[in-house]
C-alpha cells in the first residue's frame, strides 16, 4: 500500500464523511413537512389520511438529496473509483 493509494483512501474516508453533511437539508425539510402536517391534522382531523399521504409523498421526494449523499459516501467507501487510477 504505497503512499499514493494510502493518501487517496484516507481522503476518501474524509470525503465520505463530508458527503453525509448533505443530510442537513432533508432533515430540516421533512421536519417542516411534519410540522405543517401536524398543524393540518389539528385543523382538519377528518382529512388525516390524505394529509399524511401528501406529507409522506413530499418527504419521499425531499429524501432524494439525502440518498445522493449516501450513494456518494457508499461509493467512496466500497467501490472507490479513484484508487485504481493512482
Amino acid at each position: 500500500m504505497e503512499d499514493g493509494r494510502a493518501l487517496v483512501l484516507a481522503c476518501s474516508a474524509i470525503g465520505a464523511g463530508l458527503a453525509m453533511i448533505a443530510g442537513i437539508g432533508p432533515g430540516i425539510g421533512q421536519g417542516y413537512a411534519a410540522g405543517k402536517g401536524a398543524e393540518a391534522v389539528g385543523r382538519q382531523p377528518e382529512a388525516q389520511s390524505d394529509v399524511v399521504r401528501t406529507m409522506l409523498l413530499g418527504a419521499a421526494v425531499a429524501e432524494t438529496t439525502g440518498i445522493y449523499g449516501l450513494i456518494v459516501a457508499i461509493i467512496l467507501l466500497f467501490a472507490n473509483p479513484l484508487v485504481g487510477q493512482v
Binding site: 419521499a60 421526494v61 429524501e63 432524494t64 440518498i67 449516501l70
Partner: peptide
C-alpha cells in the same frame, strides 16, 4: 429519474 429514485429510496429509507 427523480420519481424512480423516490420509489427506490422507500425500501432503503
Amino acid at each position: 429519474p427523480l420519481n424512480v429514485i423516490g420509489e427506490l429510496s422507500n425500501p432503503v429509507s
